[in-house]
Amino acid sequence: MDDNAVYEARLELVDFVIEVFHDTPDEAFIERLLTGEVAMPGEAVNDHLDAGFEELRQFIEQNEGRDPAEVENELAKEYTRIMVGPRPDVLPHETFYRDDTDFISEGLADVEASFGAAGWSPPEEYGEENDHVAVEFAFLRFLIERQRTGMEETIGFERVFLDEHLLTWLGEFADHLNEETDEPLFLAAAHIAVGTAAFEDEIIAQLL
């Protein structure tokens, strides 16, 4: 696989996590999944990515031939139940899972400091606190895009962000989500989030 293909694969993984978790997955995204427009690897990558793509295949099989709008409505109900509330079971925020900080407390400033050090500001359309999984993956996307243009300093920024943030909580988040829902699309995205962080960890280790 050439460098461009590797960058495309990295960005597609990140984008999948963002699409599923930044809000209720929308009809257009669901239609792309159900019509086979989202590529899946043909061979094993790592345990979490493999598990995630297996859940995704299950989601596609369960919903094959259905109206994407109907699927969207069902996903919206489940997304709201488990991650919005009024009393959500799962909060997809780093500071909810970290033992060394309180939810949306001083740990949030640490996340934002990583963004600022790399010269990035979160997109306003996400509407979530900056330690939300979709926001953190949007930052990861920014770093990967900059690496693609030759900005080598972003490799170091990603190394720190993986070690101090993403790798510290995504596994527990995925385990928690697995306990609270049977929806394969959400389970797929949780596994793919963990697997992508592990995949990035390996890539960055090679680049440094």
Results as ranks from 00 to 15, higher is better:
N4S: 13
V6T: 11
Y7K: 11
A9S: 14
A9K: 06
L11W: 10
E12W: 11
V14D: 04
F16Y: 14
V17F: 11
V17C: 07
I18Q: 07
V20G: 04
F21H: 09
D26T: 04
A28P: 00
F29S: 02
I30A: 10
T35E: 11
G36A: 09
G36Q: 10
A39T: 08
G42A: 11
V45L: 15
D50E: 07
E54N: 08
L56N: 09
I60H: 06
I60V: 15
E64I: 05
P68C: 15
A69D: 02
A69C: 02
A69K: 14
N73Q: 14
E74V: 11
E74N: 11
K77T: 11
E78H: 07
E78Q: 09
E78C: 06
Y79N: 03
R81H: 06
I82R: 10
M83E: 02
M83G: 03
D89P: 00
E94A: 15
E94Q: 11
E94V: 04
T95G: 06
F96A: 14
D100Q: 09
T101I: 02
T101W: 13
D102I: 10
F103S: 03
L108F: 06
E112A: 02
A113K: 09
S114P: 00
G116Q: 01
A118M: 02
S121Q: 08
P123H: 13
E128K: 15
V133N: 02
E136M: 14
F139K: 01
L143Q: 03
R146P: 00
T149E: 13
T149C: 00
E153L: 05
E153T: 06
I155E: 05
I155F: 04
F161A: 02
L162G: 04
D163S: 12
D163E: 14
D163N: 09
D163G: 03
L167P: 02
L167M: 09
F173L: 15
D175Y: 14
E179P: 00
E180R: 14
T181R: 06
E183F: 06
E183Q: 13
E183H: 12
A189T: 04
G195P: 05
A198Y: 10
D201F: 08
D201Y: 09
L208I: 13
